[in-house]
Design a protein around this nucleic acid. Structure first.
Ligand SMILES: [Mn+2]
Ligand SMILES: [Mn+2]
Ligand SMILES: [Zn+2]
Ligand SMILES: [Zn+2]
Lengths: 139, 139
DNA sequence: CAATTATTTGGAATGTGTCTAATTTGTTTT
DNA sequence: AAAACAAATTAGACACATTCCAAATAATTG
């Protein structure tokens, strides 16, 4: 799917596909995340959605991002102790994290090989593997 | 160094080795982290240090943990959006994160192999690579 | 000892994120 | 369509980790 394919109508379908009732606010929040194709935190989403006229409350932005995540429509990225980033890319992938700017960049999981992880204790299952490469501009 | 080798006297040396002036509070905080050999967050450190009589303020705990980290004596682990964990193990290594209990377990870096990381853009250097394996008890 | 510097401290402030009870919106029933 | 019911949104209070600040203490220097 190309970036220009992320229309509000497509967001409505996407929401339905994830069993989420499409409302004005939910469509706008989904559109903010998917049309930008970026890793955004809650207050950035809020700023985008309310850019013209204030339309969506803080509570709804947080409720909705958590709902999207529970339904598997987006993913959380934990790299910054002060805020959560939300990622519209739910395919398995990893991240470069620019510690100077806070910018996140995807790393395709097909490219990388990871071996030698110790066996899990019995009764444990892997929920996911996150690789974060912290980078910074040369001093 | 064995666990029983972490005495308060050794902490004094360790602090000096990192260019940190050893004070009562700094020695206690270092001792809390190194003698436990665990991943602790700020309020756990505070609880340990003040277990008997309240001796160290919240501000000092935070100041000191940040100082230790800047001087490379300990390391931050970012896995939980609500709090930072501090790790007395500064050797390169990775982590299991039990999302049910919040417990962190080290993974030795010698055991694992990681290949295929894309080349960095020019002017960028890698500061570190963190691999976090999120695990949970079988449903 | 006096002066200076380093460290610690309580408490206020900041910033994310959650909670709650009231309102609005949407849907179903009669 | 009006009433009843359910779902979603909202403002603002709240919680909590962390930082900030200016005053108090402690340690060092001359
Ligand atoms: Mn969440
Ligand atoms: Mn920090
Ligand atoms: Zn991503
Ligand atoms: Zn560790």
């Amino acid at each position: 799917m190309k970036a220009c394919d992320y229309t509000r109508d497509n967001m409505t379908d996407l929401l339905r596909q994830h069993g989420i009732n499409p409302t004005h606010q939910r469509i706008e929040i989904a559109y903010a995340l998917f049309s930008h194709q970026e890793h955004l935190c809650a207050d950035q989403v809020m700023a985008i959605v309310n850019a013209k006229h204030s339309e969506t409350s803080k509570a709804t932005v947080y409720n909705t991002l958590n709902l999207f995540q529970e339904k598997g429509m987006i993913r959380e990225v934990i790299v910054d102790p002060s805020k959560v980033f939300y990622d519209p890319n739910t395919h398995p992938h990893h991240h470069f994290y620019n510690i100077a700017t806070g910018e996140l960049t995807d790393i395709d999981v097909d490219d990388i090989g990871l071996t030698g992880l110790p066996q899990l204790p019995p009764g444990m299952v892997t929920e996911g593997v996150d690789i974060i490469v912290r980078v910074r501009p040369t001093a």
